[in-house]
Design a binder for these strands. Structure first.
Lengths: 153, 153
DNA sequence: TGGGATTATATGGGCGTCAATGGGTATATG
DNA sequence: CATATACCCATTGACGCCCATATAATCCCA
């Protein structure tokens, strides 16, 4: 599977290390399994992460916005300048930067949520609540959800 | 036959393993017979499952939504983080995640119901009751049922 | 075509490997 | 030199792989 899926709850040890879920590590290209990028989510108090290869895709999406709009500058600044690269050690663990811990409220445990081509890291309780809220909002729009889930090729 | 059809009742062993019905395994593409995806049904206390190929189509559709919209996050969260991938061993068995067991009430036995392009897994009693209820509802609308069954291609 | 032989499926269990986690020590970087 | 981080090793429990068996389905040949 080459997508980030499912959710995982991992502990942060005394040294601040946390395991990137094994199935997430396998999504990263074999060449760059020891490096990921992290940045603050624009829409929620969570961290978004992915392999370094995805940077190009993010750049493309931002480039598709109108260059002279305020959004362009805002997204460009908010995302690129906030990106940090982090090394994953041989056991698959990495350090969550202090600033991102503060931003998310993460203390002793981190919740990883697969999002397809990237993943999110949440303070566990907030992350679970977010999942419920999302699901509730979508159930109000059954039709569109069914479209995504059941459409046949 | 390349569709999930019929129903099967299989036991869950001490290790939590359960056999995916043989005829279901044969529906999966030969290349990916050792991995399936599972997710909570939107409409009932059951699990829905299918091959990983279907997930990739779903990913493509979500990816086409406006990346910076709220809908994107809702779909992405509700689908990707709720989906779990499970490995099917050489004997055709897999593990039902604890959370999905709780969601469905499955304990020692699992009922598999073919649904065409996907299948459902129910706690046996509830699954049978659901079948009866479905049929009863359909019979109230004989006309539309006949339409579906007799329509020629 | 009947009945024994072969194959497949569902199920049970042993055991090695890997993932998550903990901690000691070397190394780097300011 | 002090703090942070990378590397190495250890532990534990879960899971995958392998082998085994019983029952059911299929085959095959006299």
């Amino acid at each position: 599977m080459d997508l980030f899926v499912s959710k995982f709850f991992n502990k942060i040890d005394k040294k601040g290390r946390v395991s990137l879920p094994s199935s997430f590590r396998n999504v990263l290209p074999k060449a760059n399994r020891n490096e990921i990028i992290l940045y603050k989510s624009i829409k929620s108090p969570s961290i978004e992460g992915c392999g370094v290869g995805r940077l190009k895709e993010i750049a493309k999406r931002i480039n598709n916005l109108d260059f002279f709009s305020e959004d362009y500058d805002d997204f460009s600044t908010s995302i690129f300048s906030e990106i940090v690269t982090t090394n994953v050690d041989k056991e698959g663990r990495f350090l969550i930067p202090e600033e991102l811990k503060l931003y998310t409220g993460i203390k002793t445990e981190a919740a990883f949520f697969g999002q397809g081509h990237f993943f999110q890291i949440w303070e566990p309780k907030q992350g679970l609540k977010n999942t419920e809220d999302s699901r509730r909002r979508l159930l109000k729009e059954k039709k569109s959800l069914r479209m995504i889930l059941t459409q046949q090729k």
